[in-house]
Amino acid sequence: MSFLVRCPNCGERSVYDFRFGGEVKARPAPEASPEEWTRYRYAKQNEAGEQLEWWYHRLGCRQWFIARRNTVTNVVSDTRLP
């Protein structure tokens, strides 16, 4: 794993600068059903292709941002602040 990620603040950096924060998903409302909560907690889309993910620029600006990454090629096509 050695791909590059373009931080919206700092520009292109090695992936080792960053922390992966998982898929972007919507948090259920407090009164949502246990099934919905279970899906939110444990189920992953695991898309073979492009998905939106949280990333954190650990060794840089220390900001969370959202990246569109292709999980097959590791090409990060778009990043933006949330």
Binding site: R19, G21, W54, Y56, R58, R62, Q63, W64, L81, P82
Partner: peptide, 10 residues
Amino acid sequence: QQWLEWWAAG
């Protein structure tokens, strides 16, 4: 710190 910042993000 990252956990707090994450929940503040956006």
